[in-house]
């Protein structure tokens, strides 16, 4: 199995290179003067040229990319003139907060989605199935930021039960901690729940149609034992979508964090966009994209352990 894992890791390298290249190209080459915000209004051409040399903007493009890439690898993202801080410092704090929210959302989304999907897949055609199927299509269609606002209206504005935003840490007590997490997690994981439920239902239902299920029943296994077999066979597509969902969570974090004033990467991106602080957008986007690639890599490796063929390196 190890050689296969290594091969998969090797495949991730060009992907990572591609991802960084796309972001770099997007935010370095597109219209707009990168120096405009950095220079005083009365700057001369000489000032301009000096700053351009300082920032390495006079070098040929491929060289600039390589330099930038090495900076990124070293965690060196430059300085944000708007926030008057090192970008890496801004990102570090934000990353922790996003990781906290995203992991809670991921776990909540997956657990809920898998539970609902399994129920629907086992009781195909029942009322539970119809409910889950209906819920899934609602969850897929509903904008997460609208759910967030609805939750705010109900739980903050009307019932005054939950705080409208902000972050809490564990030291302030679990009640405080979870009351700040509840609405961001719920609204952010809506899509995950829907997709996971849908894929799980389809995979379980499909596996129940496999012929080996007859053999399991013919052996006299209890229904829960049969379900265990079915679940292990059905897990692969669920894992794949779980990896992809991290994309929804990370992408959606921009909206959710903005609405709930959660000081994470998403809010950082939002504020940077508003200020046209493109280097922060660039740095944050790279970080999120790399996280996403690595998470999917992890999912792929995890998946290999469920597939006997891959386990044996076939």
């Amino acid at each position: 199995m190890m050689p296969l894992v290594l091969r998969r890791l090797g495949m991730a390298l060009p992907t990572l290179l591609g991802v960084t290249l796309v972001i770099w190209l997007l935010l370095s080459l597109l219209p707009g003067d990168p120096l405009a915000f950095l220079l005083p209004a009365d700057a001369t051409a000489v000032d301009r040229a000096k700053l351009a040399t300082e920032l390495g903007l006079d070098r040929p493009l491929p060289v600039r990319y390589v330099y930038w890439l090495f900076d990124v690898i070293r965690g060196e993202f430059g300085f944000s003139p708007f926030r008057h801080r090192d970008i890496s410092e801004l990102i570090q704090n934000a990353w922790k907060n996003t990781a906290l929210l995203a992991s809670f959302s991921a776990v909540f989304g997956l657990v809920t989605g898998i539970t609902l999907g399994t129920l629907a897949g086992v009781y195909r055609g029942s009322a539970v199935d119809r409910f889950v199927t209906g819920f899934a299509i609602v969850g897929l269609s509903v904008p997460s930021f609208w759910v967030a606002i609805l939750l705010l209206i109900v739980f903050s504005a009307q019932l005054r039960l939950l705080p409208a935003g902000g972050l809490s840490n564990w030291a302030e007590g679990p009640g405080h901690f979870f009351s700040h997490l509840a609405m961001p997690v719920l609204s952010g994981s809506m899509v995950s729940i829907a997709i996971t439920a849908r894929v799980t239902r389809a995979s379980i239902a499909e596996t129940f149609r496999a012929e080996f299920v007859d053999t399991l029943r013919a052996k006299g296994l209890r229904e829960y034992q049969v379900l265990m077999h079915v679940a292990k066979n059905a897990v692969s597509p669920v894992l794949t979508t779980a990896g992809l969902q991290m994309g929804f969570l990370l992408g959606g974090s921009v909206l959710i964090e903005t609405i709930f004033s959660w000081p994470g990467l998403g809010q950082l991106v939002f504020n940077a966009i508003a200020a046209r602080d493109l280097r922060v957008v660039q740095a944050t986007t790279v970080l999120i994209a790399v996280t996403f690639v690595l998470l999917n890599l992890f999912v792929d490796v995890l998946q290999m352990t469920f597939d006997p063929r891959q386990k044996r390196g076939v």
Binding site: F212, T215, L216, K232
Partner: peptide, 15 residues
């Protein structure tokens, strides 16, 4: 007990 027609699909592939 029962023995099924197609041995290629009668066993659980992941155990």
């Amino acid at each position: 007990s029962m023995v099924f027609q197609d041995p290629m699909t009668a066993l659980d592939p992941v155990f």
